[in-house]
Amino acid sequence: MKNKLALFKFVIRYLGFLKAVPLLPYLFDSQLMLWTLFVRPQILDAFDNIESEVLRWQGTGKRLHKYGGMQFDFNGKEIGHIHSNGLLDIRFSRKIKKQLLAEGKVNRHHIFEKSGWISFYIENISDAQYAKQLLRKAYEGLYAN
């Protein structure tokens, strides 16, 4: 995962200050989509699969994430968001994050490493299943509250 996300991480870390420029994050995310379209088009099918599943859950909706990508909400609160390179970011409690990290499938968030946020890299269509499980877990947490 490290190598595949090296450029993305470089941009986020060193050019992240540019996210304040109006529309620039969307432009960056669309470049990721363009890359995905030509290099790993099946990931876009995985996004559709995830989207149709999440939007079936009661009270959910989607919108553009403020820093680019597709964001899923439950009653206006963010469940998680997917960047167009396949990086799924979800916020959990620190306790759940610890459990998920122990399972070994997710990573610390690419910026907020010490928070409850986790990142999961969707590399192929089969990863959509686990992505949906993660989103469901976050959704149920929000639903319960």
Partner: peptide
């Protein structure tokens, strides 16, 4: 092209 692709997608 990257610029207009980005905004067209938006």
């Amino acid at each position: 092209s990257p610029l207009i692709f980005g905004f067209l997608m938006l």
